[in-house]
Write a protein that binds this DNA or RNA. Structure first.
Lengths: 227, 227
DNA sequence: GCAAAAGTGTTCTTGGTACACCCATGG
DNA sequence: CCATGGGTGTACCAAGAACACTTTTGC
């Protein structure tokens, strides 16, 4: 492992996959199948291979450990964690990725993991293996900021969605309330955020909501600030 | 070097150090003293050592290669570059750092580097070694965005500065003009951005400008948008 | 008709933009 | 007094906040 100055090391990717499910912000966790931390909850992840970059490694690990398909999922680097003693197995530096996913079917366990499941962020953070509590905390805060300045909130929703559903994403992720009347006009006035699909969604009660899909815009100008 | 799946590798840090100098945004470059790319311009940087994290490695390399002191300099991770063939010496993944520095004395060459110097970003980018053109381009855009949402513009200035000097930072980094009258009130109304020091700076002509120092605020709310 | 939820209009206020004007210095 | 640049005041307008009201469904 070591050479001059211990400069050879292994590079891991760890994934913070968030979704909004049952009106709560939830985090994808696996139960570790091996030591160290066997049986404890952790972020999905794994080691970089010789023929891939970190983005490809993140997509592959997501598929292997959770059966989720990474195509179409927004995956971005959220941080680098490199404390020399962060992993008892030796010198391992981790590149953390953040992804926002729609409310997908509960994932099943894959190769290295005994089981994968969604858990609300408040109860998940505080009991994770390695330095994953810190990684998850940082990534969640990054996701909250993204909603202010980008159109990424739609990544939490399926292909077609209503404006009230989009608003609830903001409320759940931020833990605040958002005025439905003002939200509607804000979204409608932002060119390219959403595009009408010409259908409506019927519900148990109340007026049906119009359906939309994602538009081409990525930045939200002016930003939507948390109150 | 290689083990199963070539999973052992070396981790480098590369530094994008920006300053505003002679009314232009400039980038700190070194001329490479060794192959590969010997004699070509590149970003300062080097390998992670066994007993340090990437932030410490970035500060150490900055000191070694450019004699600049990293204490007090804002250093942040700006990206991870991990294409398998990005370095002809083998599998090397690089963590890019961004730093904003005041107009410091021209640095002298250090250990690995034959010479270090400032060069305007427009002429520097396009001729750098490795994938450093890409790294520098990404980091410069990140710095431009920081000025909109944070108070980091003051990092380009010495401890005491005037409001017109701060305004020129925005103009130079963004390549736009900013109305001096409106800029003054915008800054003054942002609690904690700057604090008056009670002195004035005399100049060849015109009314002396009041001196300020950085305040405790880090975020700029509401943001200062580029026109 | 009534409850429930979607969606519109209206007012108020805040903050950005544009620009006229005044202030403080050196020569 | 004039040139030069720093700094203030004011009028206008766009966008956010608060909230009354209308629309469209199921029962």
């Amino acid at each position: 492992v070591a050479s001059r100055d211990h400069e050879y090391l292994r590079l891991a990717v760890d994934l913070v996959i968030l979704t909004v499910r049952e009106e709560r912000l939830q985090l994808l966790l696996i139960k570790r199948g091996k030591d160290p931390f066997k049986g404890q909850d952790a972020l999905p992840g794994g080691f970089l291979r010789a023929d891939e970059n970190v983005e490809q490694a993140a997509g592959r690990e997501l598929q292997e450990e959770t059966q989720l398909n990474a195509t179409g999922l927004h995956l971005e680097v959220a941080g680098v964690y490199s404390a020399p003693d962060r992993d008892p197995r030796g010198r391992i530096v981790s590149v953390a990725f953040l992804a926002l996913a729609p409310d997908l079917p509960v994932p099943t366990g894959g190769s290295d993991a005994q089981a994968a499941r969604w858990e609300p962020v408040e109860s998940a953070i505080g009991k994770l293996a390695f330095d994953h509590d810190r990684i998850a905390t940082d990534a969640v805060e990054r996701a909250r900021g993204h909603l202010e300045h980008t159109t990424l909130a739609t990544a939490f929703l399926p292909e077609m969605f209503t404006i009230p559903e989009l608003r609830r994403i903001y409320e759940v992720v931020w833990g605040t309330t958002v005025d439905p009347r003002n939200f509607n006009r804000k979204i409608a006035n932002t060119e390219g955020f959403i595009e009408p699909v010409g259908q409506r969604r019927f519900q148990p009660a109340g007026r049906p909501a119009a359906l939309y899909r994602r538009g081409p815009a990525t930045d939200l100008i002016p930003p939507m600030l948390r109150s």
